[in-house]
Design a protein around this nucleic acid. Structure first.
Lengths: 153, 153
DNA sequence: GACAATTTAATTGTGCGCAATATAAATCAT
DNA sequence: ATGATTTATATTGCGCACAATTAAATTGTC
């Protein structure tokens, strides 16, 4: 037993799962950037619009839960969408703490142009890698495990 | 054949691969945040230190290629690491365009504390999901496909 | 050797992402 | 009903991420 205590090399960057996720995320936003620029949207703005296209009138809070984002991120993002004329922000009469989000006609109209974005992406790469939804499932499981493990509450 | 042309619903957010990657990335940085805060590092700073621990003296350019980040991101980040006393930035004598990055004693000393970070993470979640490196491989393949597809050059 | 083209960093400006805090409204407890 | 607690949004501040530009050094060409 030659106890060769190698000075505990930290794992190589490229072999770490966190880095792979980090890089894949950047690659995705880069990929979406061009297509979304034609819609005048950033990627996070596009995600917000996806939620509203799925059904508007939701509150900022509900949107935040769907996207895992807080008001510190959403408030300025939503103000930009409002300034772009895509949504309206209306404070609730029943509960004046809440702000409901509605699509304008322009925001509704953008849905169709937005609809072809994931299709274009999907054809380019989706089937190649995500053959049977396995990767998607793995990532969801990963996220769950991460959230569970980092539940500092 | 009842041709019910449903108004082309955009895919649900939660079923989109890009969103899963986006969410997993956030979950990772959240998970790392606490452990890294004890080292006084952010997650991107930790990635930079990983590269330098793997071998210092590299240029900003080389670091950027390793991390897929440009000088716009790296210059201020490296200045912060320098201000924290972890690295030195030295402009090359041979080629004054280049800046080489060296670990200080403090930066070198941080390696050991940093070494237990991925271990703690890995034990918490690594084995659960990444049973045999399949997920890692899938993500790398995904990244490759994305970069290839978005090679606007 | 002079000058154009390329390369490397740094700078500027915009938009997330998130912690911490503030503010105001609603709810709860007495 | 009044005061304490909780909830929803907004604000502030810091640190990425990246496009676009600038500045300076190097290389290539003639």
């Amino acid at each position: 037993m030659t106890e060769t205590k190698v000075p505990e090399r930290t794992a190589r960057l490229e072999e770490q799962l966190c880095f792979a996720v980090y890089q894949a995320g950047h690659a995705f936003t880069r990929m979406y950037r061009l297509a979304l620029a034609e819609l005048g949207l950033t990627y996070p703005q596009y995600l917000a619009m996806l939620v509203l296209w799925d059904g508007d009138g939701v509150t900022v809070k509900a949107l935040g839960e769907r996207l895992s984002l807080d008001s510190g991120t959403l408030t300025p993002l939503l103000k930009r969408l409002e300034a772009a004329g895509l949504i309206r922000r209306e404070r609730s009469r029943q509960d004046e703490r809440q702000v409901h989000l509605y699509l304008t006609d322009a925001g509704e109209a953008l849905r169709e142009k937005g609809a072809c974005v994931p299709a274009a992406m999907g054809e380019a790469i989706g089937e190649i890698v995500n053959s049977d939804g396995r990767l998607l499932g793995d990532l969801k499981a990963l996220r769950e495990a991460l959230l569970k493990a980092s539940d500092h509450s």
